[in-house]
């Protein structure tokens, strides 16, 4: 290109280090999420081992090569139990997050798009439900059903759509005031078409982000319910159940039965939050256009 700067120009770069730490963070998060998902999907069908296999000769062994996470008070391999537990927790988390996001998006979009008394009514409902502590409401809901996976999913979903509804409504309100909606109306678009073609695609990235961030949230909630003995039945090893069952051994100085399930709650949470944060930066249109002139 002849219009480039003259020959022999010395170029200086700016701010490269900040960029590389972000890249490292994103890659580590992506790797952790990938490992988690793969372990949960592949280990149970591929590994022909029984997580329930009791071996009373080997109870409460500290971590070793044979049992990397140690064994529990019935001599069951903790690594295997953790993977199964993570599987249950993730299933509950993803299902609950999806359901909560659907409810929240529907309520928030309806409130934002309809306006008037419908909006006031829906948002007062959201405020009212928000004023009740999540866990209390969750316990109330699970208590109405027999213990199982779906009551927990319903309980988490019904207590967690409120924030999504608020986010989506705010986003719809801000989009609705933009001139491009005016232009669409002036171009003959119906209310329905504006909602489907202009408003919904605008809020979907935010709603999807909220859904992703809600997965760990829902996992925590499930663990909390299970820890209280109100969540999943004890034969389903969720992470919360594992910690709950191991409470006694912690007092006896055996740290591994609580530490590893705990770590498996925390690490995927951080990894998902790391990925979601990077994604949020990407979908923010201002950042995208900053690089343009």
């Amino acid at each position: 290109m002849t219009c480039e700067a003259p020959q022999g120009t010395v170029w200086r770069s700016y701010g490269t280090d900040r960029r590389s730490t972000r890249t490292v963070r994103v890659r580590v998060s992506a790797a952790l999420v990938a490992v988690t998902v793969l372990a949960v999907l592949l280990v149970p069908p591929l590994v022909q081992l029984d997580q329930q296999a009791v071996d009373l000769q080997a109870k409460l062994l500290p971590p070793s090569w044979a049992h990397p996470f140690g064994t529990d008070d019935l001599g069951r391999d903790l690594l295997l139990r953790c993977v199964y537990g993570l599987r249950v927790s993730l299933l509950v988390g993803v299902a609950a997050a999806l359901a909560a996001t659907l409810i929240g998006t529907a309520v928030g979009a309806a409130a934002g798009a309809l306006g008037g008394w419908a909006e006031r009514g829906l948002m007062r409902l959201v405020d009212t439900l928000s004023s009740v502590p999540h866990l209390l409401l969750g316990i109330f809901i699970v208590a109405m059903f027999r213990p199982g996976v779906w009551p927990v999913v319903v309980s988490v979903a019904l207590t967690h759509w409120l924030s999504t509804a608020r986010i989506v409504r705010a986003e719809v309100l801000s989009l609705r005031a933009r001139p491009f909606i005016d232009a669409a109306v002036s171009g003959g678009a119906s209310r329905w078409r504006v909602a489907i073609r202009h408003l919904l695609p605008g809020v979907l990235p935010q709603a999807a982000l909220a859904a992703v961030l809600m997965v760990p949230h829902a996992m925590w909630h499930e663990s909390a319910l299970s820890f209280l003995g109100l969540g999943l039945p004890t034969h389903l090893a969720s992470l919360g159940n594992l910690i709950q069952g191991a409470r006694g051994s912690l007092l006896a100085g055996q740290w591994w039965p609580t530490l590893f399930p705990g770590l498996l709650i925390i690490v995927p949470t951080l990894a998902i939050a790391g990925l979601a944060g990077a994604w949020r930066e990407r979908i923010n249109p201002r950042r995208r256009s900053e690089l343009m002139l």
Binding site: R178, P179, F180, D182, A183, A184, S186, G187, G188, H198, G202
Partner: peptide, 15 residues
């Protein structure tokens, strides 16, 4: 649709 409108800020007027 008998009326067409153009606004001040193109960035905000375009989806």
């Amino acid at each position: 649709t008998a009326l067409g409108i153009v606004f001040q800020q193109p960035r905000l007027s375009a989806d």
